[in-house]
Amino acid sequence: MRTNDELVPAEERPTDPVRPRMTRTRLGIFVATFVVYVAIVVGVLTTSWPVRFDWQVMLFRPYKQWPEIHTFLDYYVVLGQRGPTAVAVAAWLGWRTYKQKTLRPLLVLGTSLLLLNVTVGAAKIGMGRLGPHYATAIGSNEMFAGGDIFPSGHTANAVVTWGVLAYLATTARARRIASVIAALLALGVGMTTVYLGTHWMSDVTLGWTAGLLVLLVLPWFEPHMARAETWLLALWDRVRERRAAAAPPAGARVGLAGPRTPVDDQLPVREPVGAGSRATARPAERPHLPARPHTARSERTPVTPTGSRRPPHADRTPRTAPLGPAAGRGRPGTAGG
């Protein structure tokens, strides 16, 4: 006997995604990453070896060492820009949402971007570090000077945006491939910002760890995303029901006759245009005119009058007499008189 799932086409079945849980392994990676995050921040605040390395790379000026790749990297760094990458990934996840009949892909993307903006944005504003192009003193950490580049937003966004695709992979093989691709893209975007001189090396390393922390905490938000999906689907169902209730019935549309009601029977009946005219009214509907028999066309009075239609003229001879040779001789002024 075939089950209900076998009777429904595969493309119409709602997919029940496997939601990741915060396992002990994932929790251990999260703690280790957080320790690295704190170590980088402390190293920069104390102007220790991360700051010295930042200045060494900055004074090396990579964009002057390899100027031939400058144009390419100007375009490549867009892969870490929040607007274009979010639109591209949202389009792909929107198609997956339609095929899988679930809002989870878009909810995961929205939650991850929200966490990224809150955490990275707060760190940028709170520490206020200036970038290499705006540095004021060699060897300084440039902290709390009104900047907003620590950690690197491009790098953290590349980790989160492309890492979400690996997080949402449905098979182990697809997850491994997507993880490698996301890691290479994030690595390339981070090093490109260092090459262009827009970020310190410590900005990039902190951006990598900040983006990874966002991906690692997503399982803690899975129950909230599941409740949000249930609420959104219920809201959509209520909106559809209200639209269906507010729509007019099929018989009430223009050009369709619906069932008559007692109120319709009490309304006056409107006659069509020309129904009461004398030309179209029947004899029974015209009591002021006497009834007369219908005559045949041969018995009717001819409409065209007999005789000539020309008006009479004083110099014109009437055509009552027959025309002949003698008729011309009798006219005055002729040769025969």
Rank of each mutant, 00 (worst) to 15 (best):
R2L: 15
V8N: 09
P9I: 05
T15K: 12
G28W: 03
G28M: 07
G28C: 08
F30A: 07
T33W: 04
T33E: 05
T33H: 02
V35I: 11
I40M: 06
V42L: 08
T46P: 00
T46A: 13
P50W: 06
P50S: 09
V51E: 10
D54C: 02
Q56W: 15
P62N: 13
Q65N: 06
W66D: 14
I69Q: 09
H70M: 06
H70P: 00
T71I: 11
T71A: 12
L73R: 08
L73W: 12
D74S: 13
D74G: 15
Y75L: 08
Y76T: 05
L79P: 02
T85F: 03
T85P: 05
A86R: 01
A88T: 06
A91S: 12
W92N: 03
R96H: 10
T97C: 09
K99Q: 12
R104D: 07
V108C: 06
L109F: 12
S112I: 00
L113V: 08
L114H: 11
L115G: 00
M127F: 15
M127E: 11
G128R: 02
L130C: 08
H133Q: 10
T136N: 10
T136R: 14
I138E: 13
S140G: 12
E142Q: 15
M143A: 14
A145I: 13
D148I: 10
N157G: 14
V159G: 11
G163Q: 05
V164G: 01
A169I: 09
I181T: 15
L184Q: 10
A186N: 03
L187T: 10
T193E: 11
G197L: 05
G197Q: 03
T198Y: 07
T198Q: 10
W200H: 04
G207I: 01
G211M: 00
V217T: 08
P223I: 02
H224A: 06
A228K: 01
L233G: 03
W236Q: 15
R238D: 03
R242G: 15
A244M: 01
G251N: 15
A252R: 11
G258N: 10
T261Y: 00
T261F: 01
P262C: 04
D264N: 07
D265S: 09
R278P: 04
T280W: 04
A284V: 13
E285R: 11
E285L: 04
L289Q: 14
H294A: 09
H294I: 07
P305Q: 01
G307C: 01
P311S: 13
T320W: 10
P322I: 03
A327F: 00
A327G: 00
T334P: 03
G336W: 05
G337Y: 00
